[in-house]
Design a protein around this nucleic acid. Structure first.
Length: 482
RNA sequence: CGGGGUGUGGCGCAGCUUGGUAGCGCGCCUGGUUUGGGACCAGGAGGUCGCAGGUUCAAAUCCUGUCGCCCCGACCA
């Protein structure tokens, strides 16, 4: 269709240039706009609504597991950040520093938080004295700043929004259990609400969080075959407790250092949502997080204009508070224009109501995921719409799951490994001996990194390392990553 | 930090080679006709051409400098 071409011209097809497609979509769907500062963006209402839904759905899970929200300062005295050696080293290059305030040079420079371990630990040291104060389970929603050289909307920005949980426990076992519990919460949330299948696993020493004992992550596969870390959960051990002196007197009267965890997901999830589900026509929002779940477009002909409009308004009012339904009764835009715009924005379900539908006593429903059209009688709407949305949610997950399955391959020798990575991308499962030198060599030669060592034992059998063939180890997930 | 690109009404671009005081498409505003996959007609508003200096009677255009932003790589949620 001529019109189709015209429209599609505004969005670069994925096959032509995936990264340009991504940029076209985030801008045209009005998720964000570039701000005057490099790497910074304004998150527009439609994009922010996704974040609000994430906050609500993930926030609910965080609270349900006993955590409470709190807020800690944006500014961290430089000396605090520098306490934990590995932590400083990891973050120093990307830290923004405030040196002046109130027109004067500051006595101590202030770091703009790149993450809040330091400032939070300094407070926890004051709050914790006894085993009775534990566990301490706190989460905060905030912005953080990391001075990035290479930025991309949502995926890597100089400032981003996230949620960071910081907990303190009496024992190592409890801390480890908490770390894994929250990883599980992330997996459940991302799979069931964002419809993105993920692999849960442990990070290698090289890839772990600066200052952590162990880092776990959930890893997702984007539709261009590159992996994206979608959430991390760290067992901090006693590293921070020791330098910040978070001590408690235990039941046995002894003074002990506490065990800590931290875990976070960021606005990067929005990037994942776009890259996992989107197509050449734009976004495809999973209904559970879609800012608009259903759009109702009245077809306003000269005849029956008022009747159609009245019925549309009546239907919209009926779903008020039950579904996120938007009535698009703007005049001056043709129905076709609206269809395309809402498809670009990824609204899962579109309802059309025109003179014909009025006669037939219902609406025409069109799914964003399959393009399938159906007629729904007015009386069935209340019951049918949630079912269709649920079906769309499941279908999106299933599509993504299938894609991941088709793009997860096993490699038994290095040539095979290299070929898969360079020609097909996706996840590659291969044996790794555990030596950082092999990890590094693989990265240099293929640009693929170890995404994680899966928690779920895949075959569980050890084999010769894909790189050195000498050492033996279990299979790890490799991929080129964002 | 390297490589590339780009800066001209809100957006996308042309004009620059060969200096002569800014144009096109989209969008926007008004009115009318339209409306089942990005409608049409008529009228209209809107730009000291990233910034600074220089050359010239005259600079979007030539020269010098500078800044921003975007993309691709090395480092990272």
């Amino acid at each position: 269709m001529a019109n189709d071409k015209e429209f599609v011209k505004e969005v670069t097809p994925q096959a032509v240039d995936f990264s340009q497609w991504y940029l076209d979509v985030v801008l045209k769907a009005e998720l964000m706009d570039y701000a005057p500062v490099k790497g910074c963006m304004a998150i527009r209402p439609y994009g922010y609504a996704i974040w609000e839904n994430i906050q609500q759905l993930l926030g609910g899970r965080i609270k349900a597991t006993g955590h409470k929200n709190a807020y800690f300062p944006l500014f961290i005295p430089q000396s605090l950040l520098q306490k934990e050696a590995e932590h400083v080293e990891g973050f120093a290059p990307e830290v923004a520093l405030v040196t002046r305030g109130g027109g004067e040079e500051l006595a101590e420079k202030l770091v703009v938080r790149p993450t809040s371990e330091a400032i939070i630990c300094s407070m926890y040291a004051k709050w914790i004295q006894s085993w009775r104060d534990l566990p301490l389970l706190i989460n905060q929603w905030c912005n953080v700043v990391r001075w990035e050289k290479n930025t991309r909307p949502f995926l890597r920005t100089s400032e981003f929004l996230w949620q960071e949980g910081h907990t303190v426990h009496a024992t190592e076992d409890e801390a480890e259990a908490e770390t894994l519990q929250m990883l599980g919460v992330y997996q459940d949330f991302v799979e069931n609400e964002l419809a993105i299948p993920v692999v849960a696993g442990r990070k290698t020493e090289k890839e772990k969080f600066a200052g952590a004992l162990r880092t776990y992550s959930i890893e997702a596969l984007m539709s261009d075959g590159r992996a994206l870390q979608a959430g991390t959960s760290h067992n901090l051990g006693q590293h921070f407790a020791r330098v910040f002196e978070i001590q408690f007197q235990d039941k046995d009267d002894e003074l002990k250092y506490a065990w800590q965890t931290s875990w976070g997901v960021s606005t990067r999830l929005i990037g994942a949502l776009i890259m996992v589900h989107g197509d050449d026509r734009g976004l495809k929002m999973p209904p559970r997080v879609a800012p608009v779940q259903v759009v109702l477009v009245p077809i306003l002909m000269k005849k029956k204009k008022e009747e159609v409009l009245n019925k549309a308004r009546e239907l919209a009012a009926r779903f008020n508070g039950k579904l996120r339904l938007e009535l698009d009764d703007r005049e001056g835009y043709s129905p076709g224009w609206k269809f395309n715009e809402w498809e670009m924005k990824g609204v899962p379900l579109r309802l059309e109501i025109g003179p014909r539908d009025l006669e037939n006593g219902g609406v025409t429903a069109v799914r964003r995921d399959t393009g399938e059209k159906s007629f729904v009688a007015e009386g069935d709407l209340m019951q049918q719409l949630p079912l269709i949305l649920q079906d769309i949610q499941e279908n999106l997950f299933e599509q993504a799951r299938q894609f991941r399955q088709e793009n997860t391959r096993h490699a038994e020798d290095f040539d095979n490994f290299r070929n898969i990575i360079s020609e097909k991308r996706g996840f590659v499962l291969a044996h790794w001996c555990g030596d950082a030198a092999c990890e590094e060599k693989i990265k240099e030669q293929t640009k693929a990194t170890i995404r994680c060592l899966p928690l779920k034992e895949l075959d569980g059998v050890e084999g010769p390392c894909i790189c050195c063939y000498k050492g033996r180890g279990k299979k790890a997930y490799f991929a080129r990553a964002y």
